[in-house]
Amino acid sequence: MDKGLQSEGNKLNVQDLIERNKQKTTFGQRIEKVIPWFLLLCAIISVLTTVGILFTLLRESIGFFSNVSIIDFYTGTSWSPWSGEYGVAPLIGGTLLITLIATVVAVPLGLMSAIFLSEYANDKVRRVIKPILEVLAGIPTVVYGYFALTFVTPMFQSIIPDLGIFNALSGGFVVGIMIIPMVASLSEDAMNSVPNALREGAYGLGATKLEVVYKVVLPAALSGIVASIVLAISRAIGETMIVTIAAGATPNLTFDPTESIQTMTAFIVQAATGDTTFGSTIYYSLYAVGMTLFVFTLGMNLLAQYISRKFREEY
């Protein structure tokens, strides 16, 4: 067999060497069998993380609800855990107020930035501005908190003189600045994927750029834009450090942005840094609040996925 390989005068026969090596590569064969299982195990860790999060939140929340009635928790309007009042509404209200302010700031600015980058800016400008804008998304939130407290609040105070040091306005405003790149970047991607043929069709009828944006690009990219906004809102709901530092620690069911409030996330930080003993009701309340927060953000994320899958434009 394999006579053809013994080329004239050649002492080296590679296939023979390979054949000889074959006998001793059982180790290699074993690796080949074990590796996929190891890799699968690692992939499963991410699933375990999700399971762990659900388990943690559920178990400790159930512990909490055996001390405090779930009805009182969700219907009560006063949150004062150190005196035994566990009505979560002020925390949810605080979170929603911050989210609302952030959305009012980020959606117009983010969308307009996306329109500018996708439709008006030339390639050179886009390639400079887009990465710079994305730097905003990479700045640690504790730095934003510092900025909100030491710069934005004094700035607003010069306009609204009786604004307190801790207020929802500057916290929400800075959260908004932080999520601008999310809205801008994802919306721009959606606008970019609108095929040029659609634009050219409108230009061919004598439309101005603005008309093309309103009548062609925005409607065509709508689902991507909406998904980006929903994701950004979810991000604002879960934001912690900015509101902890700048928005105060006063559970306060109000929609007055100049007041000091407390969000769900800020409460969790406050309780975790205080002298909260393991197993106390306050300790468990961390998880009941965390659970509520998790449901909010998960709902938003699923909604965003649903929107972009359901209404995906097929060109």
Partner: peptide, 8 residues
């Protein structure tokens, strides 16, 4: 590459 893969 080939020879190495086959243990040479």
């Amino acid at each position: 590459y080939g020879p190495r893969v086959h243990g040479i």
